[in-house]
Amino acid sequence: MTTQHITLTVNGEARDADVEPRLLLVHLLRDVFGLTGTHIGCDTSNCGACTIHVNGQSAKSCTMLAVQADGAEVRTIEGMVAGTELHPLQQAFWDQHGLQCGFCTPGMIMQAAWLLDQNPQPSEAEIRAGISGNLCRCTGYVNIVKAIQQAAGELQASASAPAAAGEAVAAEA
């Protein structure tokens, strides 16, 4: 078995490993790096439980080789918290009961995060289409959609908040 040396950044941290070319990226994350928040739900890239970000693009890590991520920036669910603070999507999934068994949740949150990167104010139809590569068996998607709407609102508010505060200060001066 020949292995190849790869280096990559995972959740902001430089990592490296010697891997067989056939090692799936999801297995590198889970079995080698111990980041078990990314899950596996199918073999055919239909379910999206393994969704992560590679160089800012959402990807199904069961349909990508670890060697393909050599040199890449990878973000997983474990990289979504800032210190102890939840990402607005994490908070919104909790607030809106956007999860039940929790198995699809990390992939769903990562896909939603990518979606909001691309389209900060998605319509309900755009949200539904945006998560159509992620299957959930528990929630019927209703509260997932609501959670993404909540997070979109919060992200939008926090994006405009510093500017608004600045304007207020300027007005007072």
């Binding site: 070319p21 073999d43 055919t44 890239s45 199904k60 349909t63 990508m64 080789l65 393909q68």
Partner: peptide, 26 residues
Amino acid sequence: ILSGGYSLLPLMKLRLAQPALLVDLR
């Protein structure tokens, strides 16, 4: 040839495709 991989890798996981070498165009 490996490009995005979303067609080839599922077939390889099912072992319906078993190439000896992958040439990644990345």
